[in-house]
Amino acid sequence: MAFGGLLALRGVDIAVEEHQVVGLLGPNGSGKTTLFNILSGLLRPTAGEVWFAGCRVTNLAPWRLSGLGIGRTFQIARPFAHSTVFDNVLVGITFRSRHHYRRVLDRRREAERLLAMVGLAPKASARANELSLGERKRLELAMALSTRPTVLLLDELASGLSPKGREEVIRFYGRLKERGLTIFAIEHSFRVLAHVADRLVVLDQGTIVAEGRPAQVLGSPRVMQAYLGEDE
């Protein structure tokens, strides 16, 4: 993937197995979010292919990929800022192409369930731009889940949270895994990664520099080097 003269991703070949949690890490600017933008259809790669469940899905529009079962969160939350929290979650429930509810009541019930699950039920009628950082992260997760995806792309869910918030994120990962979701997660926190990931991939300057089981990867000198100067 190139932006003008900048090669943001090169020769990245990653397979995410069903029902697995794969962690993606790497220093800032290494191309992690760019990879997610390609996987979710927001960017068209200048070269390379994306496959999903046996089908080539390169260059499909975001709404098509969403229909196939890909959901994502954003590192910097991008809610519908002037809409209520409730409506933010309702959009995906209403317009997803699979598991469609005919009745408004059913859609609203699912929205309530989702908000309760992420702990935002008391904020349902607040506007999204009134939320705190932690609440925005919860909303991101609820929005990503609102289309009932089978694969979730989570972009730095735990970043910027307090240690307590981080523990909660770890519990969330556990619950999502129990539901059988396939998860591809960008995280910086070694603690979170060590707890939740089945496999890790490390990016640096747009290429994969390490790959394998968490214990292996987190201990490798190459990873430490990539992260040199960064905390955790």
């Binding site: 979710s40 259809g41 927001l42 529009a61 975001p62 709404w63 990929l65 969403s66 229909g67 959901g71 994502r72 954003f74 991008r78 809610p79 519908f80 800022a81 002037h82 809409s83 409506d87 309702l90 959009v91 995906g92 209403t94 317009f95 997803r96 192409s97 929005m143 609102s146 289309t147």
Partner: peptide, 19 residues
């Protein structure tokens, strides 16, 4: 709901199935 979603965040709306 769709109008507001398209207005506020067109890309996000698309990711949620709103063309």
């Amino acid at each position: 709901l769709a109008f507001a979603a398209v207005r506020e965040e067109e890309e996000r709306a698309s990711l949620l199935g709103v063309r």
